[in-house]
Design a protein around this nucleic acid. Sequence first.
DNA 1: ATTAGGG
DNA 2: CCCTAAT
Length: 623
Amino acid sequence: MEVDGSNSALVNKSEENDFEKKGSSDPVVYQLVRVEGDGTLVPATEDDVLEFEHFLQDEKVNFPSIEDVGHVEEFFSNDCILLKKSDLEDGSSKVKTLELHTQKMGTDLEENRLDGSLGPPSNSGVLHGQQPDKFLAEQGDSNIAQQDNASTETAKPIVLNDSCSAEKDKADACSRPVDDTSTEPSVSGVTSYVPDFSILRGEVCLDDLTIRELQEAFRATFGRQTTVKDKIWLKRRITMGLTNSCDVPSSGCVVKDYKIVGKDVRQEVSNTGGIPKIGLQSTLVRDQVTYPGNEGDSPSSSYYQSEDQQGSSKRFKRVPIHNDEPQGNLLAGQCTNKRTRKPTKRYIEELSDIETHESTGKLSSPAKRTAHDEVLLKPRAAPFHELESLSTIYPTRKDTLGGFSVHVPYVSRMRRGRPRKDFISFVDKEPSVQCNVQTTVGMLSKECEEGNHVRKASEVPPTVNPERGHLEAVDRKGVQNLQANVYKAASKPKIKRGLTRKHHRAWTLCEVVKLVDGVARYGAGKWSEIRKLSFSSYSYRTSVDLKDKWRNLIRATQTQLPAQKDGVCPRKINPSIIPIPPSILLRVKELNELQSQGGGFTAPVKFSGQNSKVVQGKGLGFL
DNA sequence: ATTAGGG
DNA sequence: CCCTAAT
């Protein structure tokens, strides 16, 4: 078939889908046609067919027949647009054509079409108008009634997108009145300068409209002209206007009867077998993304944003789309794969963060977004209401302002880095401050006792640490108050953890010795045991602590020791810092090597005992 | 709940 | 010490 001299191309009726024929009572023929950027119609290639085959199948399965007089469905694929044009329900027309458009159509071609619509039918205009006919003719199919339909007009497909569809109707297009009242969907010649309000009725697929058409639509919708040439913007605005909703995807949406259609296929399927306006689209169209969170979340939680396209496309990859279509499954599969790999918590957070921002960028209403972000911004997302007071604490001034009224000192905010030296959990100590918590007190006292009992005088007393100045005490009180409140309110250990930090307790030589001894006895790694058996009196030393300390000791062994051996002290020994006696380090080294080498080992209790004694003596001397 | 490691 | 992943 020759569409045009330059753009001529043969349209093969090539791909007929068998299932289509046998499937429905009224014979329908699908044809796949690739439309090149220049508007040329090219026979669909094998690949094209394959690519869209499943669509057709799905369609068949899911969408029995067309309710509307006619309509066009678009399916965007990587680089093709599949148009399904359906004809009258009454069967006057039984030919359906599938056309593949290269993506170009969305760009260059669009422009061309614009021109074309106004001028001679040269390219895409032919696409919908002539082509089908030609196609039919070529096919020699007797069923063809496309033209009849066109002329008949009642059944004219409402292919808004192609202004050109009107090409052939050009003649009548002019004469066609702008009929606002007419209920029948009409394509009408958008070519005319008269605002075509018909564009607003019935099913409208804005995606196919040219900029000019969109502008017309905009004009028709809002009663004013626009010079905006951003298709996305136009589409969105129009859709919003038509639907009176903000929940509009950037594209891929079809507006019908003043409602957005196609977001959820099932909604639009009628009992009589009406075909959903956009069935597959949601899964195929790049721009259109069904954002799960949005569906149940908040009905109107999207808003216009210029850069949403990127975001959406991004999301497209990872957001599972709830559809029955294979694509959906595919996506789902991808997601599954993703899940296979276990992301770290942090990773998840980041991801969700991004996602959220994207989503907010695209779908969330400003209002919601604020709230949303707020939640997300919280370092450790804890959307619990109880924690709100706490949550709001995060550092960002902005958030604080816009967020809840509860303002908590930044201090209380969990911090990544090391807290102030004196920053300790109120629970940890100073029960006197205000906590009536007896358990705490008891614990502390006990701890203290133990600590004191075992510890040397130099050790930090469990109660107020002498090291701390008054300043600190005061400061801390305030903080503690807050913390206490927060803690009470939240009553979640996790939070407490996040907020409070274990009081730093310097390891005493005694402890180190015990640790070494324990390692010697039970082996490195048996921290739990060591803690139980050797650190029963040091309740504040956890197995993790032991482990960490041991690690540090080893490190010291690898650095400090050699230097000392060499007799060269890398740096002056800070008097305030009691160096670990070389003897201990040596032993640590030995143990480390021993254990790392031999793997299993038998604890030389004697040895350890001896050493510990020796060390202790030394240690005492030092301390 | 522990253990191993990175921070 | 904290935080997490992996057991």
